[in-house]
Amino acid sequence: MQGNNNMKVSFDARSVNEAFARVTVAAFIAELNPTIDEVEDIKTAVSEAVTNAIIHAYDSPGEPVQLSCALKGNVVEIEVLDTGKGIGDVKKAMEPFYTTKPELERSGMGFAFMEAFMDDVRVTSAEGEGTRVWMCKTIGVQEG
């Protein structure tokens, strides 16, 4: 039975930090002995959330993205925070294939991936203030 554990890091909104973010979370959750598949699911979800913050939150690179992770028993909770533009219509932003940046060939599947790979995803946002993505996944519960 694992106890609780928390971590928090802040990094510049630069694309090179996408890999840093997902690898950091993967290392942090290792104490729960997740399967390779669970680790990869979480890495993908973190990558999606952090990439969203990097691409959409700020007009110039170098602004902060905060990533935190909490282990509660066998539950992993992840929060990705930015203090950028915010999302006007969160429901619309979460629709599959919706993207505000088709010119960058964004697939519009970021939130769909987070929802597919995590147990729960919650997004709160305020225009001009920033966006918070919270998601969780229980480790050790194999699907069918």
């Binding site: 997902r22 990869e40 993908t44 990558s47 990439t51 960058l104 697939s107 599947m109 769909a112």
Partner: peptide, 10 residues
């Protein structure tokens, strides 16, 4: 070994 939705766009 790793691909996310950015890869789908590519």
């Amino acid at each position: 070994e790793f691909m996310d939705s950015s890869g789908i766009g590519v």
